[in-house]
Amino acid sequence: MGKAVLFSILAASFLAHVPAAAAADNIAQFKKVTGAVFVEREGKRSPAQTGSHVRQHDVIVTGNDGAAGLTFADNSLLSVGPNSELALDRFVFNSTTHEGKFDSFLKKGTLAVVSGKIVKQTPGAMTVRTPSAILGARGTEFVVRAD
């Protein structure tokens, strides 16, 4: 086997590992997407589809006709309505102990929340910030609007 071939195999296997490492950082998946829905990551905006993943620090942005629902690794369910902007500031979850922290910021628009295992294990460990308040979730379901 020539050195060049060996190198390209090594390079390919290395590259193949890069997405796998990134995949470990996925915190949630889009389950429903209607209309214009985007994910902003590191300054870049890309359209969201059912099945696409999000990571900590991503911002979900919807247009006039947009709405989207996400299921998180701790079984939390979040959905946003039209003209919304939701920043996923922090999501940490230990799937064995169920300990974690989930902080998001609804800059504008609407949000519906069903809390998951993080809140069940540690009431209050999930917060949603709006421009004029901070909400600490001690359980289950609520809706939020930010103007």
Binding site: V114, A133, L135, A137, G139, F142, V143, V144
Partner: peptide, 24 residues
């Protein structure tokens, strides 16, 4: 013109109501 933020607690699917602490 509704220029404020709002949070509303909903009953859960299992009819259980949780709680949310709102502060500023």
């Amino acid at each position: 013109n509704l220029r404020h933020d709002e949070v509303i607690l909903l009953p859960g699917k299992d009819k259980k109501v949780g709680s949310v602490v709102v502060s500023n």
